[in-house]
Design a protein around this nucleic acid. Sequence first.
DNA 1: AAGTAATGCAACCGCCTAGGT
DNA 2: GACCTAGGCGGTTGCATTACT
Length: 239
Amino acid sequence: MGRSPCCEKAHTNKGAWTKEEDDRLTAYIKAHGEGCWRSLPKAAGLLRCGKSCRLRWINYLRPDLKRGNFSEEEDELIIKLHSLLGNKWSLIAGRLPGRTDNEIKNYWNTHIRRKLLSRGIDPVSHRPTNEHVSNVTISFEAAREEKGSMFRLDEPKPAIGHDPVDWGQGKPLKCPDLNLDLCISPPFQEDPMKPVKREAGVGVCFSCSLGLPRSSECKCSNFLGLRTAMLDFRSLEMK
DNA sequence: AAGTAATGCAACCGCCTAGGT
DNA sequence: GACCTAGGCGGTTGCATTACT
């Protein structure tokens, strides 16, 4: 059994909005403000789903929207933000006043993707498409979105420069997105001819190397079994 | 001029999450 | 903690327009 639909589909219009519907929605929101999208259609006399009203208002009817072509600066900012945030269109839109997530998403898919590909850049990874080295990008994006993280990207955009380091109202960010342009190489060995000597507290037991829960006898100092099992940071070369 | 393919974009769909009970 | 609801988001679709043959 699935969720109940967000509205009564049998009695709702679908497809393109008419001028009259736009006028009704605009007039209602101007009079009563945004909010309670579920009940809005009925109150405004619209045969539309609440979600549809919200989308129409946010994407096309809001008075603060900037219509028209994207500038070169906006292009570059979108590319930069996408390289940091990925497909977080709403967050990207939050940094571009007057632009909506839907508009940016469409613009990305129709223009910027092609632009990057023509430059020989992969629009997903933002790396040259002919790059053969296996790269690892370590991002704190996921952690950042959690409560209590060092800073939040969904804060209102300060009227400072476009560089992410400026987003903290001029204060240096404690943890900007970490993109070390790392690549994986064989594990570090001071002298490849010497056998590796593991000191107490440095080596890992078998279970830790597999990432299994630590046993009571375990004296490993590894971090989630990553020290030698997966990520010996000494072996991550800075490019 | 007509037919077809490519493109752009508005709108929808389904999932996720936060907040309330 | 479980459940429900509304709002929000990203992916996808479908239609109108434009470009090409």
